[in-house]
């Protein structure tokens, strides 16, 4: 009985970790072919740790991120840059993208190029009411494949605050979502 309980507890503890990792893609297969690899694995503990070192008032960029970090549970990034095109299979990418069709995921951007050497990008968001629970960005370029997976609660106004920082494009929220935006941001807009 105790052993069964231990198994259940272990499974429960491991579940978020398994869910956090990008699935259905053999990342290990790509690594040896890549000329350059970037991997970022930040779980909840690491994010808390990073939050302690993010600049407070006076550093607007880091301050916006610090507020965001409180409810994040993980940030995972994979970037593989190749010497030549065709080092990864587009069908593998499609298979990977398909897991974000349904299951509470909303397709925000799905841009596909049929031209040879064109880019394919996808932005997927999991929402619970007004709150974003997960964000996945996939960019498949001829010589580069990149996936960003952000897990945790993000309020739309927090996302808007990040616009224009760290190269993140300005995000124009609908009027309803803007009502909840922070006063400082509203003041700037006025």
């Amino acid at each position: 009985m105790t052993q069964a309980l231990a198994y259940v507890m272990t499974a429960a503890l491991c579940a978020p970790v398994i869910w956090a990792q990008p699935k259905d893609f053999d990342w290990a297969k790509l690594a040896p072919k890549a000329a350059e690899t970037v991997e970022v694995n930040l779980d909840e503990n690491m994010l808390r740790m990073a939050g302690r070192f993010m600049g407070g008032k006076g550093n607007g960029n880091e301050e916006a991120v610090k507020g965001l970090l409180k409810n994040l549970r993980g940030v995972y990034v994979r970037v593989y840059r190749f010497h030549a095109p065709g080092e990864y299979s587009l069908s593998d990418v499609e298979k990977f993208r398909s897991q974000y069709n349904g299951g509470g995921w909303n397709k925000i951007v799905d841009a596909r190029s049929t031209k040879p050497g064109g880019d394919n990008t996808g932005v997927y968001m999991k929402t619970d009411g007004d709150v974003i629970q997960g964000l996945v960005v996939i960019a498949a370029q001829p010589k580069e494949l990149a996936v960003v997976n952000i897990i945790g609660s993000i309020r739309p106004e927090q996302l808007q605050e990040l616009g224009g920082k760290f190269g993140i494009p300005e995000i124009n929220l609908p009027a309803e979502a803007r009502k909840h935006a922070s006063p400082s941001k509203k003041d700037e807009e006025e």
Binding site: M49, F53, T121, V137, L162, I168
Partner: peptide, 24 residues
């Protein structure tokens, strides 16, 4: 560890920014 986590987080945000710009 905190500094390394911060460095990785900022890198992740910059990559996310680049990817969102590409998508846009």
């Amino acid at each position: 560890q905190g500094q390394e986590a911060k460095r990785q987080l900022l890198l992740a945000l910059r990559i996310t920014g680049e990817m969102l710009t590409l998508a846009q």
